Simulated scan of single mutants.
Amino acid sequence: MTTKYRIIELLHKERTGALNAQEQQELTNWLSTSKNATLYQQLKDSASEKEALDRLQAYDTETELAQILGRLAPQQQNKKTNRNWFKVAALSAACLAAAFLLIFPFFKKTEEVKNIIIAGTDKAILTLEDGTIVPLSNFKTTVNDSSGTMRVYADSEGRPVYEYTGTDNNSSGWHTITTPKGGQYTVKLPDGSTIWLNAASKLSYPLNFLADRKVKLEGEGYFDVQKMSVNQATLAPFTVELSGHQVHVLGTQFNINAYKENAQTQTTLIEGSVQISAQGSTSMLRPGQQAIVSSSGPGVIRIQEVDTRSFADWKEGYFYFDEISIQDIMKKIAKWYDIEVAYAGTIPTEKFGGEISRFENLQELLDLLEMTEKVHFKVEGRRVTVMP
């Protein structure tokens, strides 16, 4: 992606209030040049917008921004500046005007925008052992029973976290946290371990968790399992039960994708170590490796090296596509935006690469994908048709 598209993204994020401090500094530095500031003002003025678009299309932003970025502090240069903006290797100059339709509708009335499908949010339900259902949408949610206390609180970023603090080793039964399509949630267990649940997922844990550190997962979850201290050495090992196999954990971070509709389960290790067990076979993973186990096969464990960003992206709040098909992209999008996906015509076989915030509305994400000129979309209600 050329730097002129980076400017497009920065200006778009400014309009939507999504600039972080470093991006604001990057934009401020760009605006420090008088001709850039003039262009910026023209882009806000509908009377001069076309002229400004023509000027930016011919702009030598490569040289301009190279000089600007060179003046930034070294610590700023070392930080990742492209998270939440979509990168496409072969964007043509002809796409520039279309891109600006996303960025500067300053004179469009809000009521003209229809059928906006917003991104997912933090939402889930708790199902107790006795079948009681508790919505986890209120920070004041607190449930007390004989097994311990359950509460919802806000983390440092203001996101809700469900915490279970049960310490009664004699309790029996299981509690279950379920996220719908378009939902995600954070769960904290009595040993300090934290689990982030992706959309359309289910996590179950025993009421006597400290006596049996075992959870069951359907869907997708990112795990940060606490390493036990010396005085906790008597606790049981942490185990994730999946369809047909288990993941045995020490202190580590890893992601598991185990949606029922998939033909295989993927366990991706970020740091630490885990052991995969499947019908008598066992394998150890190193950071950067992924174990693939068939959901219905004989329990064969296949190990491969991967870019972990492709599998931990959602937990960090963005989509990272590493040369994957449009079908795989749409699977991720469908769960997060709670939409139905259909296909019409001959769908291209090209692979797509890039990254974008998970918190853009659906239309903005689809518009960016269309800028590749490889796919197009028709949105009808919550049904999205993918076309060549």
Results as ranks from 00 to 15, higher is better:
234 T>D: 15
214 K>I: 13
271 E>L: 12
235 L>G: 04
222 Y>L: 06
206 P>E: 05
259 Y>P: 09
183 G>C: 08
212 D>Q: 15
267 T>L: 02
241 E>R: 10
205 Y>R: 04
217 L>S: 02
206 P>S: 07
226 Q>R: 13
191 D>Q: 11
200 A>W: 03
251 G>I: 11
206 P>R: 00
188 K>A: 14
226 Q>M: 09
216 K>I: 05
192 G>W: 15
220 E>I: 03
195 I>D: 01
202 K>Y: 05
231 N>K: 15
240 V>W: 00
200 A>N: 15
223 F>A: 00
202 K>D: 00
199 A>Q: 03
240 V>H: 03
261 E>L: 02
237 P>Y: 10
180 P>S: 11
187 V>K: 01
223 F>V: 01
184 Q>K: 09
224 D>M: 12
229 S>T: 15
229 S>H: 13
199 A>S: 14
251 G>E: 11
245 H>L: 03
237 P>Q: 12
226 Q>H: 09
202 K>P: 01
247 V>P: 08
182 G>M: 05
269 L>F: 07
243 S>K: 15
183 G>S: 07
190 P>T: 08
197 L>M: 12
241 E>V: 15
245 H>T: 05
253 Q>P: 10
254 F>W: 03
254 F>I: 09
248 H>T: 10
270 I>V: 15
190 P>Q: 12
185 Y>S: 02
215 V>E: 06
213 R>F: 03
189 L>G: 02
190 P>M: 12
193 S>M: 11
215 V>M: 06
263 A>W: 03
205 Y>T: 08
242 L>E: 07
202 K>G: 04
217 L>T: 02
252 T>R: 00
193 S>V: 10
222 Y>I: 07
190 P>V: 09
249 V>M: 01
226 Q>L: 10
180 P>F: 05
239 T>Q: 14
267 T>C: 04
232 Q>H: 15
197 L>F: 10
223 F>M: 01
182 G>W: 09
183 G>Y: 02
241 E>F: 10
216 K>P: 00
235 L>S: 03
265 T>L: 02
223 F>C: 00
264 Q>W: 09
251 G>N: 12
181 K>L: 05
269 L>D: 06
262 N>I: 02
183 G>F: 00
201 S>I: 11
249 V>D: 06
191 D>P: 12
221 G>T: 02
